[in-house]
Amino acid sequence: MRRLLGVAVVIAGAGLAFWLVLGPSADWEGGARLARFALLLSCFLVIGGGVRLIYPDQPQDEPTEVAG
C-alpha cells in the first residue's frame, strides 16, 4: 500500500512539473515567474518524497542492529 501511494505521489509531482515547464504561458513576469519556479522546485521535493515511500532506507523485515 505504501509503495502504491509513492507511485501516485511521483506521478502527480512529475505531471505538475511537466505542466509547469511545458504547459503554461512563458511570458509570466515578476512574482508569478518566481512563484512558478518555487512550485517547480517543490515538485522535485515531492518526487523525492514519493521515491522514499517506494524505496525506504531500511528494510522493514530485518531488525536494525544497535552498536555498542
Score class of each variant (00 low, 15 high):
M1E: 02
M1S: 05
M1K: 07
R2W: 01
R2F: 02
R3P: 01
R3T: 05
L4N: 03
L4A: 05
L4I: 06
L4F: 10
L5H: 12
L5E: 09
G6I: 09
G6T: 06
V7L: 15
V7S: 09
V7K: 04
V7I: 14
V7E: 06
A8R: 10
A8E: 02
A8M: 11
V9S: 07
V9W: 01
V10Q: 04
V10E: 01
V10P: 02
V10W: 01
I11F: 15
I11W: 14
I11Y: 13
A12Y: 01
A12F: 06
G13R: 05
A14K: 01
A14I: 12
G15D: 07
L16G: 07
L16V: 14
A17P: 00
A17G: 07
F18M: 14
F18N: 11
L20T: 03
L20V: 02
L20S: 02
V21A: 13
V21G: 04
P24V: 12
P24Y: 12
S25L: 06
S25Q: 08
D27T: 14
E29R: 06
G30H: 06
G30E: 02
G30P: 00
G31N: 01
G31I: 03
G31H: 04
A32M: 05
L34Y: 09
F37Q: 06
F37R: 07
F37I: 04
A38M: 10
A38R: 09
L40D: 05
L40V: 02
L40P: 00
L41V: 13
S42F: 14
C43K: 09
C43M: 13
F44L: 15
V46H: 09
V46L: 15
I47Y: 12
I47H: 12
G48Q: 10
G49K: 08
G49P: 00
G49M: 13
G50Q: 03
G50S: 08
V51K: 09
V51Q: 10
V51W: 14
R52A: 15
R52T: 08
L53E: 03
L53V: 03
L53M: 14
I54D: 00
I54W: 01
I54M: 14
P56C: 08
P56D: 10
D57S: 14
D57N: 12
D57I: 11
D57H: 13
Q58H: 14
Q58C: 07
P59L: 12
Q60V: 11
Q60L: 11
D61F: 05
D61I: 02
D61S: 09
E62V: 03
E62C: 03
P63M: 03
T64K: 05
T64D: 13
E65Y: 11
E65M: 12
V66D: 11
V66W: 03
V66K: 15
A67M: 09
A67Q: 10
G68V: 04
G68T: 01
G68W: 05
